[in-house]
């Protein structure tokens, strides 16, 4: 005879109130990227061809630097959320899946940080 309540049985097995967090954050980052990507695509189309000094001056301006940093943070955050779902859907082996998801999350942080540091070094390097 089981005297535990249904709630006690379910605890630790379910979403523990975090079930929609992944979904929600994917949407929030998507909304941010909607604006940032449109801005960046057209800005780089205009500014990439002017040579080294012009490109540096463009990235170094506070508004560009700030927006590119936001773009990189939002893009890699969004990317690792999406790739996590892809891996969870298609990688059957649980151990491989977990390792792949962790690797994706590490890589996303490393890449975002690399890009952000590049922008900061341009912005502060004169």
């Amino acid at each position: 005879m089981n005297l535990r309540t249904p709630v006690k049985e379910a605890r630790g097995l379910g979403s523990a109130k975090g079930g929609t967090h992944h979904w929600l954050m994917q949407r929030v980052s998507a909304i941010a990227l909607l604006l940032l990507v449109l801005w960046f695509a057209f800005s780089i189309a205009i500014n990439a061809g002017g040579g080294y000094e012009a490109a540096r001056a463009w990235i170094a301006s506070p508004i560009t630097a700030g927006a590119v940093i936001l773009l990189l943070a939002a893009a890699f955050y969004h990317a690792q959320l999406g790739l996590q779902v892809v891996l969870e859907d298609y990688v059957g082996n649980k151990a491989v899946q977990l390792a792949a998801v962790i690797a994706v999350k590490f890589l996303a942080v490393i890449l975002a940080l690399t890009g952000i540091l590049a922008v900061l070094s341009i912005a502060f390097g004169g």
Partner: peptide
């Protein structure tokens, strides 16, 4: 593709 953006920014730096 975003790796290309990182590559471009790092090379610019």
């Amino acid at each position: 593709g975003s790796l290309l953006v990182i590559y471009w920014l790092v090379s610019l730096a």
